[in-house]
Structures are given as structure tokens and as C-alpha cells.
């Protein structure tokens, strides 16, 4: 069998053969394996949710959608939930997400302790609607969503915010995964480039290995000083199952899928990403390229059933 990336030498050539670079991801995977027509479904989170809703993929409940600025006042006056997340439908890299954790008199309080007046809130929505955070600066929509209550298991290793789980799939097979933990530096967001911690997850067991924060390899969470490795992700089998199911509904060849684990509702799918970042390799301390080339070498014609895929995943 063709085994690209075989060999454990930490030589320069094995380094280059193992690491997936931006250029290669774009040319060989996102441009080749992903059909352009599917991008709008992935890029707009509201559309993703609508597409996946009939397929019983658990997702956080959408409270309301805002398309026009005049709706903002209405939302401010009628929104009955005290806790929710405000998201731009077409945002990327976690930009423009705001977490509201409660009321304080006439104002709303964010997860970072800021107090938001009605004026602040409307200004914020207006920026989103006029495309400040959207891909390509196009007009955007805003939606309010159920605020996930993170599983207590993650409490020792996260600073505010909600940890999430990223699974990257190629040809319907999960090829790499990581747990992203918010830090003080990331201001409660779970994005690696904003300073969140990334920890690799072993695909078969769902157990975290060591982590990375910025460019340095770490074993303890920088704020809570708790070990990151050895956490077994709850509902791991379910998460992998949902991921493969989503891959079959939205037929992208190469994409990332984000989950959160809610203390009451279990695993919830948050969003898809057709151009998943490459930092997952650093969090796992493994290159992605050899794994993708291995999947290529299997020459899959029609996607095998879930059990066969799990078995293939195990060989990575």
C-alpha cells in the first residue's frame, strides 16, 4: 500500500511532506475538493442551520434573526432571554461575536463585564449589518442564539467563554481534531490566533494530548494553571458521528466543523468552515498533509459507512 509520510525521521523532507501549508490547502484541497456552489451554505451560518435542521443535527436554538437596523429596537424591547450570543451570520474567525450574560437595569452585560446600553447595542448591530465582520464586506445578517452552558468538565481549563471542539474531515473521514480553550488573552473567545489554547484530540479515544498557546507548547492552561492533556471529551463517539453525517449532507470534500458541549443538551454543532485553519496541526503536533494523502491513497469512490470510516480514521 502507498504510504505517504511513512517513516519517523524528523528530517527536513519528512517535515515538508507532513505539514499542510496554506498554499497547498488552497490549491489541492479547498479549491479542488470543495464545490464552489456549497460555499454560501457554509459561509452563512443561518443558512447552514436551515440546511441541517431537518437532519436532526443538534444545534443551539436561534432566538431571532435581524436583517434591518430598525429591527434592533424591537429586539432590544422584546427579547425575553437574559442570556444569549449575538453573531454575524457571515462572520469569520470569531470576529463580531458578542456574549450577553445578563441584564443590569436598562442595560445588558457582556461576558467580559462590559455594560451595553441600547445605543451601544444598536451601533454594534449596525456595524455587523453593514458588513464590518462579513467575508468580503458584504451586507450581513445578525442572529441571537442560545448561550451554551459549558460542560463542567472544561471549567478548570477555560477562562470565561465556551470551549469548542474542531473536527476536520476529508472525504467524509475525520482526519484531525482539537479542543479550543478560551484564555484571558483571547478575551473569552476560542480562536487560536486570538490567543486561545489549542489541544490535540486523539481521534479514536477522544482524549486530549498536550496543548499550544500562541507559538509555544504548553501543558497547563495559562490562566487556570490546570493540566490540558488527558481530558476525555464527553460524547466523543456522538460528535464524530454527527461530523460524518454533516459531511454527507453538505458534500464538501474538505472542511472543519465546530461543536460545543452543553451541560444540559449535550453536543451541539455550531458552524462549518470550508477553509479550516492550519493551526490544528500545531495543537496536535502532527502534520495534516500525510493524513490527507493517505485518505487520497484509499481511492474512495463512494463514501463507505460510518463504521468503515471509523476504522480508516483509526489508521491515521
Amino acid at each position: 500500500m502507498n504510504r505517504p509520510g511513512a517513516g519517523t525521521r524528523s528530517s527536513l523532507s519528512s517535515f515538508f511532506r507532513n505539514v499542510l501549508t496554506i498554499n497547498r490547502r488552497n490549491v489541492c484541497y479547498t479549491l479542488t475538493a470543495n464545490e464552489r456552489r456549497l460555499y454560501p451554505i457554509v459561509d452563512c451560518k443561518l443558512l447552514t442551520k436551515k440546511t441541517l435542521a431537518p437532519h436532526k443535527i443538534p444545534m443551539p436554538e436561534t432566538y431571532c434573526e435581524i436583517t434591518n437596523i430598525f429591527e434592533a429596537r424591537h429586539v432590544w424591547e422584546t427579547e425575553e432571554h437574559d442570556e444569549f450570543v449575538v453573531k454575524p451570520a457571515r462572520g469569520s474567525q470569531g470576529h463580531g461575536i458578542m456574549i450577553i450574560t445578563g441584564r443590569e437595569g436598562d442595560s445588558w452585560r457582556t461576558v467580559n463585564g462590559e455594560v451595553l446600553s441600547q445605543q451601544d447595542f444598536e451601533y454594534y448591530l449596525y456595524n455587523i449589518l453593514s458588513g464590518l465582520y462579513s467575508l468580503g464586506g458584504m451586507d450581513d445578517k445578525v442572529y441571537l442564539e442560545y448561550l451554551v452552558k459549558p460542560h463542567p468538565l472544561f471549567k478548570p481549563v477555560s477562562y470565561r467563554g465556551i470551549p469548542d471542539i474542531r473536527v476536520v474531515l476529508y472525504q467524509g473521514i475525520p482526519v484531525m481534531s482539537m479542543l479550543r480553550l478560551p484564555t484571558k488573552r483571547s478575551r473569552g473567545k476560542a480562536n487560536l490566533h486570538q490567543g486561545a489554547v489549542g489541544a490535540g484530540i486523539e481521534l479514536l479515544t477522544g482524549k486530549t494530548s498536550g496543548g499550544v498557546c500562541g507559538n509555544s507548547v504548553i501543558d497547563l492552561h495559562p490562566d487556570t494553571r490546570q493540566p490540558i492533556a488527558g481530558i476525555v471529551i464527553p460524547f466523543w463517539e456522538q460528535i464524530i458521528g454527527y461530523a460524518m453525517k454533516v459531511a454527507d449532507i453538505i458534500e464538501l470534500g474538505y472542511f472543519g466543523i465546530d461543536f460545543v458541549i452543553d451541560v444540559e443538551r449535550g453536543p451541539l454543532m455550531l458552524e462549518l468552515n470550508a477553509r479550516p485553519g492550519l493551526a490544528i496541526q500545531i495543537a496536535n503536533r502532527r502534520g495534516l498533509r500525510s493524513r490527507l494523502e493517505y485518505v487520497d491513497s484509499l481511492k474512495i469512490k463512494t463514501r463507505p459507512d460510518f463504521d468503515q470510516r471509523r476504522e480508516m480514521m483509526g489508521r491515521l
Partner: peptide
């Protein structure tokens, strides 16, 4: 437009991976 090699600055980004043994894939 079809350049797939590593960007020079990615060497710094992924440099940490160089010192890690990469186990074989498809064992």
C-alpha cells in the same frame, strides 16, 4: 496560482512540528 510549497514565513509558524517525530500514517 498553483504554488503549493511552504511559504517562507510558515517555516516559523510550523517550525515546532519539525522537532516532533511524525508517526507513519496508514499503519
Amino acid at each position: 496560482g498553483r504554488y503549493t510549497w511552504m511559504r517562507v514565513l510558515e517555516l516559523f509558524r510550523f517550525g515546532a512540528l519539525y522537532f516532533r517525530d511524525q508517526p507513519p500514517v496508514g499503519g
